[in-house]
């Protein structure tokens, strides 16, 4: 697959191969903010199109997810950028993928992530005078990102501006890494 070599030469934090039949993606790529634009440019060159931009509020901070897919060689690629909870900021990719404009504005509405360099940065779905960000979770509900990646291969040691998976705060490696099946969910149910 060409997707494997897509990010050769880029300083990405980590890359995991996923099982498309389990999580719907081919690859997820963990990036720092500075590398995002280069990665997006790569994807545009390789004729990927943007599906959506969304956020995920996790214990490590707010993660911004970019889903890309290809018309001719389908295979979803996820770019993941982790940003801090205080003053979350990510550079915009709307100058590369114009469709990201609205998705980024939506992401600001829901998570309060600021996209620097966005040409029309203002609320889109939320009222203009609304200051809350509805999808941010209260402290106690936040989960560790590391635990939620079970559909993919275990993240190879990733170190970047924020990503630090080598020594997660309180990981339970067997549960986090091993892919689960329906049977296991049933055992959980009995608890």
């Amino acid at each position: 697959m060409t997707a494997d070599k897509l990010f050769d030469g880029l300083q990405i934090c980590a890359r995991t191969k996923c099982h498309p039949d389990r999580c719907g993606c081919v690859m997820s790529v963990f990036l720092d903010r500075g590398q995002l634009k280069d990665a997006a440019k790569r994807l545009l060159e390789k004729k990927y199109y943007i599906e959506d931009v969304t956020g995920l509020d996790v214990a490590e901070g707010i993660e911004v997810l970019y889903h890309f897919d290809n018309f001719d060689n389908p295979g979803r690629i996820v770019l993941r950028v982790l940003t801090g909870r205080e003053n979350p900021e990510v550079p915009t990719i709307s100058d590369i993928f114009s469709g990201a404009q609205w998705h980024e504005r939506e992401c600001f509405d829901f998570f309060g992530v600021k996209f620097t360099g966005h040409p029309q940065f203002r609320p889109l779905l939320m009222p203009a005078d609304f200051t809350e960000h509805p999808l941010l979770k209260p402290e106690k509900n936040r989960q560790s990102l590391y635990e939620m990646l079970s559909g993919c291969e275990k993240v190879s040691p990733a170190k970047g501006e924020r990503y630090c998976f080598e020594a997660p705060p309180a990981p339970e490696p067997p549960e986090a890494s091993a892919p689960k099946d329906a049977g296991q969910s049933q055992t959980e149910k009995k608890e």
Binding site: C23, E51, L65, V78, E147, M148, S150, G151, K180, E188
Partner: peptide, 25 residues
């Protein structure tokens, strides 16, 4: 009660690609 993990599932709607991204804890 799904296992922990995230999933993206897409179908073809009348207007195009309908995608659901689901993260479970």
């Amino acid at each position: 009660k799904p296992p922990k993990g995230d999933v993206y599932f897409a179908v073809e709607g009348a207007r195009g690609k309908i995608g659901v991204y689901l993260a479970s804890d």
